[in-house]
Design a protein around this nucleic acid. Structure first.
Length: 141
RNA sequence: UGAGUUCGCCAGGCAGUCGCUAUCUAUGCAAGUAGGUGGAGGAAAGUCCGGGCUCCAUAGGGUAGAGUGCCAGGUAACGCCUGGGGGGUGCGAGCCUACGGCUAGUGCAGCAGAGAGUAUACCGCCUAAGCAGCUUCGGUUGCCGGUAAGGGUGAAAUGGUGCGGUAAGAGCGCACCGCAUGACUGGUAACAGUUCAUGGCGAUGGUAAACCCCACUCGGAGCAAGACCAAAUAGGGAUCCAUUGGUGCGACCCGCACUGGAUCCGGGUAGGUUGCUUGAGGUAUGCGGUGACGCAUAUCCCAGAUGAAUGACUGUCCACGACAGAACCCGGCUUAUCGGCGAACUCACUUU
């Protein structure tokens, strides 16, 4: 088993996967240039998906660059994550940053996201009533 | 050596580590794993033209509408390219050119100016026949009249120069130049001409990216085209026969299809598969052509993703790396672009 691969299992593939995340966001982390949304995954590992709007990043080259950096950063950090479905969104001004700063910011955001996910887990385990409610919502949606 | 013109080519290299994708081989029941090989551009861009391909009807006739616009050729086709002609521009190599028709018709033209299209009499020039005034009786001034040579206005004032001619002038006449028309010669043609004849030239001003006329071209929609598999949902769908009425075919008409009856049973939204890369293909050589390009032979297979691959990091070298990312595929055009290299040619200067 390769520890730092990026196969199809760790990506969000269909429109349905994305819809699930957007409809039921449990963790939300952002800075000036990007926004991360996440919810608990149905799988045993973390998965990632990308939404880069043409409005925010005008040039195709820049969009590709950002996507590649996110994928690479995720690939290298994937085993530190809780099992989450994560969507990374772009914000305006992203194309002005160089590779180094984007990677640094991503590492920071990964950590914050992970921490929040763990906090949520502890909360739900300490209050089983609330956890049941969440379970119900999931089943309905 | 410097300045410039045209054409062509390249688009950081090398090594290591970790990845992605397609494919081949090995292994495995399978998921996969290991190894090999391929993996963005000259513009992939804008979507401005032209094709292929697919469906609509097998896209046929006419009208409307749109496009193109010197000539010839190339091409699958073009609004592209090549060669040639005319015009403009540069000392030159070259570059630019929306370059059919206003002697078919209709329309348009600010300011200035007397007059701007059936041209015009403001100043000036001429005239003393007629009328009127003045008069030293010679004339002179005004009206009437002639005149487009001179001034002035304008982007533009209806051939130019010279001589004759005249009251002053005028193609009014003549010579030369220009122009037009018709021959002739050369050229496939556009067109050209130290050629000939005819015309005095207020013929025939400009504007057609003004309507328009002429010639030629064009059916529409697009890979989210279309085909197949197929949860859900709805109750229809396919084939044959018949051709009065109704509906549809996305400019309109002609025209064509469907609706009716009989027989048969599947239907098709989410999602998936396919279309999807072997092609008007590249490279080399030879032949034909001024050239665009064509033909022949040999050889090569050179991205095919689909939440969307072709990257990140480190080291190193140097000229310190621009514009920028395929999405059905080609041919162009246009726009963006750090720089580097090569070839041919032009001009200037120096040396021999």
């Amino acid at each position: 088993m390769n520890h730092y691969g990026f196969p199809r299992q760790v990506r969000l593939l269909s429109a349905e996967d994305y819809r699930n995340v957007f409809n039921d966001v449990t963790c939300k982390v952002s800075n000036r240039h990007m926004l991360l949304l996440a919810r608990e995954s149905n799988t045993q590992h973390a998965r990632v998906g990308l939404v880069v709007a043409k409005k925010n990043v005008r040039k195709a080259v820049e969009r590709n660059r950002f996507k590649r950096l996110v994928r690479d950063s995720f690939r290298l950090h994937q085993h530190t994550f809780e099992p989450l479905d994560i969507v990374v969104l772009s914000r305006p001004g992203l194309s002005d940053l160089d590779n180094q700063t984007i990677i640094k910011q991503l590492e920071n955001l990964w950590q914050r996201l992970n921490k929040r996910a763990i906090d949520n887990k502890q909360k739900s385990s300490s209050k089983p009533h609330q956890a049941n409610n969440q379970q119900k919502v999931k089943n309905n949606g």
